[in-house]
Design a protein around this nucleic acid. Structure first.
Length: 595
RNA sequence: GGUCUCGUAGCUCAGUUGGAUAGAGCAGCAGCCUUCUAAGCUGCGGGUCGUGGGUUCGAGUCCCGCCGGGAUCACCA
C-alpha cells in the first residue's frame, strides 16, 4: 500500500536530509483533502524540530527528495506545513487493472486463527421482537460479516431467554384468560399471541396492586403480595421441579414463540450457527460458584447466599447464589461464558448487548478473572445505544414499542407505493415486484439503523418513516442499479469490458477521486471490523455512490465517443458496482439489478 | 449521591482517533429530464462544535471545572 511505502520513504528522507530517526508520532501520512491538489499529504509540523527550518522549507526539501527517490511521485505542492504529493496516473491505472476483477476485493483471506464468537439477539420468549432487537440483530449480524471479511473465523450464537418469572407471567395469563386460543385459531404469529398475555398479566397485576393499595396496604407489600405475582412465583417453582403439566405448557407456548421468531429472523435476514437456551444453561454457573467458594475467591453469608466482593475494584458486592441455592442472571452468564469457551476456544467473545448492561459485563469479566479464567480478557461487550422514539423511550409494558414485523410491513408498503408512483416496472411479474419491494424496504431499514455509530443513542421517527432519498439505502441501491443498466447495455452493444485499461488513458478529477475511494475499500473494511462499526462501511459506500452519481452526470460512459475512454469508464463503473455490492453485503443489504 | 456516557446547522447524523476554511442528508428556496434510469444532479441560505479554563506549532477531537440529557449502582433479566 502506498501509505506504508511513503512512511518508509519518509523515514529514509529524514535520515538523508537531517540524519534523524522519526518516532511514530512524527510520521504522519494522510489522504489529501479534496480541495487541494495531490493524493497523499505529509504533515511536516512534527518534523520542524529536527529540520530546524520553516514549515515551507522543510516541506519543499522533502518534496524534492520524494521526487528524486520515488518513481510513483509525480509532483508536489506545499501549503503551509502540508506537503501534498501527487501519485502518477500509471500507479492508479495499475491498481485498477490488478484489482478490478478480483473476486472478493477488499476481503482478507481467512487465516487459521481461533474463531470469534459473537452473541446477539438474546430475546425473551414472552414478547415479540421490537425495534431495539432490530438494532441488536442487524449489528450482530453485520459485525459478524465484517469479522469474516477481515479474515477471521466467526461463530454467531443466540442465547434464548426461555425461562424465568417473566415467562411464567405470560404462561399464567394464558392459562387464566386464554380460553385455549392458539396461533392457528387466532391466525396470529405465536410470539404476538404470547406477547398479548404478557401485557394482559401486567394489566391485571396492576389492577390487583391498586386494589390492595385501596385496602390500605403499603406499596411495597402490595407489590410483593399481589395474588397473581405469588401465583407466577409458584409456577416458576413448579417449573424448576419439573412439574409435567407446567413443562408441557411451557414447551407448547415457547414453540409458538420460536415459530414467530424464526419468521422475523428470516425476513430480517439474520441467522445463527448455534442457539443456546437458558433453560439448558442456567444451572451451569453453580459449579463455577462452588469452585470459587472452595478456593476462597467468593464468600458465604450466614444465610447461605454466596457473594463476590468487588469493593477493591471500586464496585459493590455481587450476589451469585441465593440462600435457597437458586441462581441469578450473573450466575448463568458465568456458566454460559464457560460453556462457550469450552465449545469453541475462541480468540474473542463478543456480546452484542445494550449499553444498560455495561455494569453487568464489567462485573462478569472481573468475577471470571477472580475465578482464574484468564480468557475473560477476551470478552468484549459491544454495547450499543438505545433506540428512542421522538417522544422518548420505548416501553414494552405500556405498548409503546415499534414492533419489528409491523415496521417491516410499513417499510414494504412505502417501497411499494414509491415504486408504483415512479412506474418503472410495468414489465415486472408480481414475484419480481415483490422481490424488489423487499430488497428496497429492508435496504432502507437496515441502512438507516446501521449508518449510525453503534455506541450512540439514536432516534427513530416512525411517522416520517424512512426516506428513500438522500443518504439512504435505496439511494445506494439506485446507484448500483444504474451501473448494472449501463453494463447490460454495453453487453447488448457487444462491447467487451474485460480488458486492461491503458496507462495513457486520460483521467478526470472525479474519476481519480473514485479510484481513490475504491483503493480505500480494503482498509475501510479492516477498520470497520476492528472498531466493530458497520457505520464505517455505510458512510464509505454512501460516499462512493454519491461520487458515482456526480460522475454519471458530468461524463458520458457508454456514449463516450473515444473508445479508450469509454472502456475505461465502463470498467471503472463495474468495479464501483462490485464494491457497492460488497459493502452493502456487509450490512446485510441486497442490491437490485433494476429499480 | 458514586460510576459511566452523550451534547456538532431547525431535524437526523458524519467528522479518517490531534491537522488545512467543521461536512452530508432531510426540511426551505432557486434551477436541470428530445442525450447511458430525475429514487438523480447543481446552486443558495443555515454553526460561539453545551459552556469556562488548560495542554500545543495546531483542539469538535486530549485534560479539569460547570450546565444539561441518558444509563447504571437488585436476592429482575
Amino acid at each position: 500500500m502506498m501509505e506504508q511505502k511513503l512512511e518508509i520513504f519518509l523515514q529514509q528522507a529524514c535520515k538523508d536530509l537531517y540524519q534523524a530517526t522519526l518516532n511514530e508520532k512524527q510520521v504522519q501520512v494522510q489522504k489529501t483533502r479534496s480541495e487541494f491538489e495531490g493524493d497523499f499529504t505529509i504533515v511536516v509540523f512534527p518534523l520542524l524540530s529536527i529540520s530546524r527550518k520553516s514549515p515551507e522549507q522543510t516541506a519543499n526539501d522533502l518534496g524534492e527528495w520524494f521526487m528524486a527517490h520515488l518513481d510513483e511521485v509525480d509532483d508536489f505542492t506545499v501549503i503551509k506545513g502540508f506537503l501534498n504529493l501527487s501519485i502518477t496516473a500509471k500507479y492508479w491505472i495499475d491498481f485498477l487493472n490488478s484489482e478490478k476483477n478480483r473476486p472478493n476485493y477488499g476481503y482478507t483471506q481467512k487465516g487459521k486463527s481461533k474463531p470469534v464468537v459473537v452473541e446477539y439477539s438474546a430475546p425473551n420468549t414472552n414478547k415479540p421482537l421490537h425495534l431495539g432487537h432490530i438494532r441488536n440483530n442487524l449489528l450482530g449480524w453485520s459485525v459478524s460479516e465484517m469479522f469474516r471479511a477481515s479474515g477471521q473465523e466467526v461463530v454467531k450464537v443466540n442465547l434464548i431467554n426461555d425461562r424465568g418469572i417473566h415467562i411464567c407471567k405470560s404462561m399464567l395469563a394464558w392459562q387464566k384468560w386464554g380460553g385455549g386460543k392458539t396461533p392457528e385459531s387466532e391466525n396470529l404469529k405465536g410470539d404476538k399471541l404470547v406477547g398479548e398475555y404478557y401485557v394482559k398479566f401486567d394489566q391485571e397485576l396492576k389492577a390487583e396492586v391498586a386494589d390492595l393499595l385501596g385496602k390500605g396496604m403499603d406499596k411495597e407489600a402490595a407489590e410483593n403480595n399481589a395474588p397473581l405475582l405469588l401465583e407466577a412465583k409458584e409456577m416458576l417453582k413448579k417449573w424448576e421441579q419439573d412439574d409435567p403439566e407446567i413443562k408441557q405448557l411451557w414447551e407448547r407456548m415457547n414453540a409458538w414463540v420460536y415459530e414467530g421468531f424464526d419468521k422475523t429472523y428470516n425476513r430480517m435476514g439474520v441467522d445463527f450457527d448455534k442457539v443456546y437456551y437458558e433453560s439448558d444453561t442456567y444451572l451451569l454457573g453453580k459449579e463455577l460458584v462452588k469452585d470459587g467458594l472452595e478456593k476462597g475467591v467468593l464468600y458465604q453469608k450466614p444465610d447461605g447466599s454466596i457473594w463476590c466482593d468487588l469493593t477493591d475494584e471500586g464496585l459493590d458486592e455481587k450476589l451469585l447464589l441465593r440462600a435457597d441455592g437458586t441462581s441469578v442472571y450473573m450466575t448463568q452468564d458465568l456458566g454460559t461464558a464457560q460453556l462457550r469457551y469450552d465449545d469453541f476456544d475462541p480468540s474473542k467473545l463478543v456480546y452484542v448487548v445494550g449499553n444498560e448492561q455495561i455494569y453487568h459485563f464489567d462485573v462478569l469479566k472481573l468475577i471470571l478473572k477472580k475465578l482464574g479464567r484468564d480468557w475473560a480478557e477476551h470478552i468484549f461487550h459491544l454495547s450499543y445505544g438505545m433506540v428512542e422514539l421522538p417522544h422518548g423511550k420505548m416501553k414494552s409494558r405500556e405498548g409503546k414499542v415499534v414492533d419489528a414485523d409491523d415496521l417491516m410491513d410499513e417499510m414494504y408498503e412505502t417501497a411499494k407505493r414509491t415504486s408504483e408512483e415512479l412506474g418503472k416496472f410495468d414489465d415486472f411479474t408480481s414475484e419480481e415486484s415483490e422481490r424488489l419491494y423487499n430488497i428496497l424496504s429492508l435496504g432502507a431499514l437496515k441502512y438507516f439503523i446501521l449508518k449510525v455509530d453503534p455506541k450512540k443513542t439514536m432516534t427513530f421517527n416512525p411517522e416520517e418513516s424512512i426516506d428513500f432519498n438522500g443518504n439512504t439505502g435505496p439511494f445506494i441501491q439506485y446507484s448500483y442499479a444504474r451501473i448494472q443498466s449501463i453494463l447490460r447495455k454495453a453487453k447488448e452493444a457487444g462491447i467487451e469490458t474485460g480488458e486492461n485499461i491503458l496507462t495513457d488513458c486520460p483521467v478526470s478529477a472525479k474519476e481519480r477521486s473514485l479510484i481513490r475511494l475504491l483503493y480505500e475499500f480494503p482498509q475501510t473494511v479492516q477498520f470497520a471490523a476492528e472498531s466493530m462499526s458497520p457505520a464505517q462501511i455505510a458512510n464509505y459506500v454512501y460516499e462512493l455512490a454519491k461520487e458515482f452519481n456526480q460522475f454519471y452526470h458530468e461524463s458520458p460512459i457508454l456514449k463516450e465517443n473515444d473508445n479508450l475512454i469509454r472502456d475505461f469508464r465502463l470498467q471503472l463503473s463495474r468495479f464501483i458496482g462490485n464494491v457497492i455490492k460488497s459493502s452493502m453485503g456487509l450490512l446485510g443489504v441486497d442490491v437490485p439489478e433494476r429499480m
